[in-house]
Design a protein around this nucleic acid. Structure first.
Lengths: 346, 346
DNA sequence: GTGAAAGCGCTAACAG
DNA sequence: CTGTTAGCGCTTTCAC
């Protein structure tokens, strides 16, 4: 019916024999290593094509590289992460590297397990998006495998970082709302369950940026933060809580679009209208925010660019493990849409 | 500053020496293989813990399993796929397997490359979600590595399948719209660029289900299909085209929620209201559809269940490669929300 | 510029 | 039940 199961994979030995050269030669050609004549390269490439040879990553990994890069994503349902990921894969598209995603890691323990599994698989490098592990653990990991950390506001000599300027992003939102006339501006944050790295996490920095901006505007007594999570459910719960306040806020700044979605849901269910009764702003400028039925004011942190930068740094670090570490901090912009407007007249 | 880079990974030899047993013994304990005494198991486990030993997947893969399962996802930005994925990872959560995602494969060529890369990495099994490769190629792949195909309406002795009954799903939508009084019901499909597998693809089956249902209602002359893609942009373009028709449809059935999003956008931009001027229905019942500002009528194909079933079948097939293949077909349900209503009175 | 040979860390036969 | 031994397919010295 179909062609019988292939008996044995074509190996480097088969290629060498077919090309009438040594396995060393084949290996060198494979890796574009130094010391091969054009004639030999041609012969080998021909043999590879003839036999349909593909190198085994497992075998390569035992001695050299696996040509595999791992990306750890905290929550694949958050539409921001696909953007980062696209930046990564796009940058790596015509490199020799294959990107593999390790999905869903809630909490420090699951995260450690995921990272370990990437190390066990001898990945050549890893990108960790918004990891919650303690700094010391990240440095330990980076000591084993080239690592780029996305989102954490950390500085290390051993790993590179790419992050959005969350302080500035939060300020953009607060400034915008204040300029519209708002004073009672509340914030929905993602509460870190792991206390070990609180001040470095993007969510915590956003909350801090909110506090700083509020103070700058003389609104320290209006600071109002509810702690939930960056999920739709988290935004919903947070908004519900805020709406139940004796004096409810006139604006809600959710630390992530996905949480803003939940907040909009809660507001709509409460029979209030946006932005007439209450303004809402998010963070990430996901495609969802741009959707006209939602039209969510949001901070754009250029996820695609973040991913592309992370990929670039990782490849550079793999090539030069001892080079100085770099920290890229990208400036966010505010995209004003329909969910923010002047506060209701009292 | 930080602890110096670990010199050499702890290997099975170190463990064996520390536990005063042979490497074979360690290997056996590792794999829960037959022929180990409890006493030995304890000693080995103790040594593993003492040394912080972790097996190298690369080395294991050279002889045995890699304990890695690959999942190929066609479009990570489509919110339906995270649901499937959650089903997969959840099912595998306390197994020895690690799930790795291969992202983004547009077209047959990219897909083949992705699949090859999973085979090169000696994955123990793979789940392919809505692959576009020709059937023969899928069977070839399944001959090399245990494979479960999600979404394709194919029957093979060599791979297992999990699919939604897309004919029934499309019928649910058409029946619903007809019962509301609609006659001019249009469909936005995802056009397959690869002609090799057209009739097996879920998108094509949905379009066929639409045609069948329309005929069943005596509406064959009303059949109107625009071919774009299951993306937001695709839905937008498709709807634009439909709205420009001399006699525009009173209802649009988009083959995926993400396309319905684009359609809603186009309708809103055209100054029309939903469902008063035109009804819209989607497919997948993503969280987006449930969002009250959208409230999209949609077909629920239980993505989580699909993923869980796929994972179960894959694990079973890895254990018994020669067992009969199974085809799971799940029945979809319709979730009626606010985007569908009676057609406007003429 | 080229190739022989020694592993990488693990598993699988096979003896004991 | 336990250990010895021979590879898996590749990369890497190190001779030539």
């Amino acid at each position: 019916m179909t062609r019988p199961v292939q008996q044995r994979r074509v190996t480097i030995v088969d290629v060498a024999r077919h090309a009438q050269v040594s396995t060393t030669a084949v290996s060198k050609v494979l890796r574009n290593a130094y010391g091969t004549s054009p004639a030999m390269r041609d012969k080998v490439h021909q043999a590879i094509a003839d036999l349909g040879y593909r190198p085994s990553a497992a075998a390569r990994g035992l001695r050299g590289q696996t040509y595999t890069l791992g990306v750890m994503v905290p929550d694949i349902a958050n539409p921001f992460f696909p953007e980062v990921l696209n930046g990564v894969t796009n940058r790596l598209n015509d490199s020799d590297y294959q990107v593999l995603l390790a999905p869903g890691c809630a909490g420090e323990k699951a995260e450690a397990k995921t990272i370990d599994s990437m190390i066990d698989r001898s990945m050549d490098g890893i990108i960790l998006i918004a990891p919650v592990s303690p700094r010391a653990h990240l440095e330990h990991v980076a000591g084993i495998v080239p690592t780029v950390i996305v989102g954490r506001h950390a500085r290390s000599t051993i790993f590179d970082t790419v992050a959005d300027d969350d302080i500035a992003g939060a300020a953009l939102v607060v400034d915008h709302l204040v300029s519209l006339g708002h004073r009672r501006i509340a914030h929905i944050e993602h509460l870190e369950t792991e206390p070990s790295c609180i001040e470095e996490m993007p969510n915590m920095v956003r909350a801090e940026g909110y506090r700083l901006a509020m103070r700058r505007h003389g609104l320290e007594d209006q600071i109002d933060i509810v702690s939930t999570t960056y999920t739709q459910a988290g935004g919903y719960t947070g908004a519900r809580e805020l709406l139940d306040r004796p004096r409810r806020p006139t604006a809600i700044f959710a630390g992530a679009d996905i949480a803003a979605m939940g907040a909009l849901e809660a507001i709509s269910q409460a029979g209030l209208s946006v932005p007439d009764d209450i303004s809402v702003a998010g963070y990430d400028n996901t495609t969802f925010a741009a959707f006209s039925q939602v039209s969510l004011t949001s901070v754009d942190q250029a996820g695609w660019q973040i991913g592309a930068d992370a990929a670039r740094l990782l490849v550079e670090r793999i090539a030069h493990r001892e080079r100085r570490s770099s920290q890229i901090k990208l400036s966010p912009t505010l995209v004003v849409r329909g969910t923010t407007g002047p506060p209701p007249a009292r």
